[in-house]
Design a protein around this nucleic acid. Structure first.
Lengths: 200, 200
DNA sequence: GTCTATAAGATGATAGAC
DNA sequence: GTCTATCATCTTATAGAC
């Protein structure tokens, strides 16, 4: 099956994913989804029992994709600093393509808390991945590693989340914003490494 | 008029604000609002012409409140570092009370871009406030001040936005999260100051 | 200003023909 | 698997009595 020639269920998922990200769950109707997917309205309920179940399916796959990606990036044979650069670079690339993704995930997770939970396996991520052990060893005295990992994610992801406000506040256009994110691709790892304990 | 004894329009605004933040615009109905406010359904449309206009009113007041607060915090007679500490501390306090506020604002701004715009006056904020001039002078060569201000906001606000995911990933409960944010109250200004050009 | 009643339309979901 | 037609419900909004 070619990438552009999805089956009906695939078309529905793709259309729904796009619309949920764009307009949120509450403002996306099953009719929107059917039209966007180019399929009959009844088929949405035929393949996915309800709008809620369709959302749940998409959400689970999206979050699992994130985690899988992080797992792959952080487990290969690279230096600590290379891994940092990879995480930053990887998420900037992802969010350049789908800037609405974080807001979609974060705002809708709140409305469907059931969809989250341990089945996604994030709870074990921190213990399994060597990166976090390396990070813990490099943390200054009294600073929990979670602080530094949160800083890394914050500095990378937040600009995309706050883009509407930032653009309004600075008069920055889309092109300037993207250039700024390109600068951050190298700046963030530098700031991050400087927060760590100096290596002997 | 006492604080708890609002007039009808006030009750509606307060109930609507709470519900919009809690459930988002799309999932909040005018019936919800009327019930929560303890007023008749028809009065929502009597005082605010439509659900959209009610939202617009609340949104404008909320964002204006933010900006007003920032303006006051940053213009007083304090050292640069004190201002940094104040911004961080102030937003942590605010978000401890209303953790859903950023997601509400950011996700709904996207759905109602008209409500934003220059009328809020954020576009001039950066030029008016002395803090940003001080920041510009302390920026290392080749680093635009917007990068550093974004880092400050990111490290402060993002943890609240990502809390559901962070909690799921680390098994952190609410109490532990709040303790972590208390640590960040002093850590963030330190990290931030270390990103600046050394002062002679 | 506040209520009741209801209009006018949209929405999620399904039954049943093909 | 896919379609048409339709149901039951909920939604925003308003007209009109008090």
């Amino acid at each position: 099956m070619s990438e552009k020639d999805l089956d009906t269920a695939g078309k529905i998922k793709e259309a729904a994913s796009q619309l949920f990200i764009e307009k949120g769950f509450g403002r996306t109707t099953t009719r929107d989804i059917a039209t966007e997917a180019g399929v009959n309205l009844a088929l949405v309920n035929y393949y996915f029992r309800s709008k809620d179940e369709l959302f749940s399916t998409i959400m689970t796959e999206t979050v699992q994709g994130f985690i899988w990606q992080l797992r792959v990036l952080l487990n290969d044979d690279k230096t600590f600093e290379e891994k940092v650069e990879l995480v930053v670079s990887n998420y900037i690339d992802l969010l350049k393509t789908r800037p609405d993704l974080p807001i979609f995930m974060l705002s809708e997770i709140r409305n469907h808390p059931e969809e989250m939970a341990a089945k996604l396996g994030i709870d074990k991520l921190m213990h399994e991945i060597k990166f976090f052990q390396e990070l813990a060893q490099r943390c200054p005295e009294g600073v929990h590693p979670i602080h530094l990992f949160m800083n890394l994610l914050s500095m990378t992801v937040f600009p995309f989340i706050g883009k509407p406000v930032i653009s309004a506040a600075t008069g920055m256009n889309d092109e300037a914003f993207m250039m700024m994110m390109e600068q951050r691709r190298t700046l963030i790892p530098q700031w991050f490494m400087s927060m760590l304990k100096p290596q002997e």
